[in-house]
Amino acid sequence: MTYGFMRVRHKMRSSSEIDTVSKRAAKASGFSWGVAEEIGKSIKSLELFGISGVENLNAYLKSLNKNKPEGPKQILKINEPLSKSFCPLYTGTALIDAAESVLKLKNVKFSSIDYPILILPFINRLSYKIGRVVIIKMDDYEIKLNLNQFMTANQEIQDTVLTKCKSLEIDILDIKNTFKKETWEQLYQLSTETFVEESERSKTSAAGAGLVDND
């Protein structure tokens, strides 16, 4: 398992430079300014997680050769591209915009996506936006995204350039406890050791004392 914390990397290119250069490169490759802004922020975020955003973006933009890639027209439970595959950047942008629908759908599948690592920061923002942990399965990779704060993967993705995945599945996890009921009880009992036993005098003079509450 590999980790991606929001970590500081002591490289010679600042986050600000990565954001600006990625945005301009995306615009030069045919994306609109608004989408290019999304791309700049996303590549910056990937690099802060220690994942090769710049390498993936550069390879993807070169592969496009200034041709306009395909994004989803709307987000459905199962999404099939009209061409060979979806653009990770348009798809990521559409997912963020359709956050409410994605939350309702709970599970969304795309049959083919180019350079899928580029979609991760969008889905991480989606996770933050809807307040849910998200699991992404892209072919053999399984990646857990937690509210734009934390990423884990079942295999190395940090220095990886992945040109395509045949399927990408997004699972929105229900909010549930990660611990057993008994564990919680034990921890709660320990926490009560910070409380003080109330005296009789305190009980008779505290707020509301002496009144019938339904008066």
Partner: peptide
Amino acid sequence: SEFLILNDDLRH
């Protein structure tokens, strides 16, 4: 979200 799919040049 639907408007932007058709008008992504105005996203900014």
